[in-house]
């Protein structure tokens, strides 16, 4: 899923400083699963903002709405009747949400309420970790199913750097050295030979480096499936 962290109350309060009436728009997709932009979080944020503004003696009206998804125009269209009623809309979806909203409702102001961080999953309750860099050319089968592009701090494709120590990355003591894990996995499987030889230079055109990307599925575009 796409993982995000909520922005600080201070930052959000600064965004809506001049607004008297806002809508907080949640999303039932990834941000609900990672506990940052679902119904519960929308309600908590609304109450927190109201408390802050009452304290300032500058009340704010806040309505809430949780969309099925903010990355699909058909669901974004669900707020067409009410979107004009607000000074601004604060989206708690990933970075895609407020953009789809902005594109559909050109006269409305949309604020991002979260910082979108990475593609990952929960390794335990409350902890999410990055797994994929979205490079556009998946090759994890060459690395024991573990991605060095996303998970090595230097995106090394040919083994651990000199900073790998006891399975930990030199950059952060809480980060595992993914190359240590790849090597150990191959050794345990008796397949060290998979890591002999030089892995060729990567073509980054399929990654963000080739410019903004687009996926087209012709059969769906034509609508005949």
């Amino acid at each position: 899923m796409i993982v995000a962290d909520r922005k600080s109350l201070k930052e959000i309060l600064a965004m809506v400083e001049d607004n008297k009436k806002i809508l907080i728009a949640g999303c039932k997709g990834c941000v609900t699963v990672c506990n940052v932009g679902g119904l519960k979080e929308v309600e908590i944020l609304a109450s927190s903002l109201k408390i802050a503004r009452k304290k300032q003696g500058n009340d704010i009206d806040i309505d809430i709405k949780v969309l099925e998804r903010q990355c699909d125009t058909e669901y974004v269209a669900e707020i067409s009747d009410i979107v004009g009623d607000y000074d601004a809309v604060l989206s708690l979806a990933c970075g895609v949400g407020p953009q789809f909203l902005s594109e559909m409702y050109k006269d409305q102001i949309f604020y991002p309420g979260v910082n979108t961080t990475f593609f990952g999953g929960a390794t335990r309750h409350g902890v999410w970790e990055e797994r994929c860099a979205g490079c556009g050319t998946c090759a994890i089968h060459n690395f024991g199913g573990l991605c060095p592009i996303a998970r090595c701090a230097k995106s090394l494709m040919n083994g651990p750097c000199g900073g790998s120590s006891k399975g930990i990355c030199e950059v952060n003591k809480d980060t595992e050295c993914i190359w240590d894990a790849i090597v150990k996995k191959k050794m345990e499987a008796g397949k060290l030979e998979d890591l002999i030889g030089v892995k060729g230079i990567k073509n980054w055109r399929t990654a963000r480096d080739g410019g903004p990307r687009r996926s087209i599925r012709e059969e769906l575009v034509q609508g005949n499936i």
């Binding site: 309600e43 109450s47 927190s48 408390i51 009452k54």
Partner: peptide, 10 residues
């Protein structure tokens, strides 16, 4: 719930 507490303060 967190909201019960927050709403009371609010």
């Amino acid at each position: 719930d967190i909201l019960h507490l927050l709403n009371a303060i609010e």
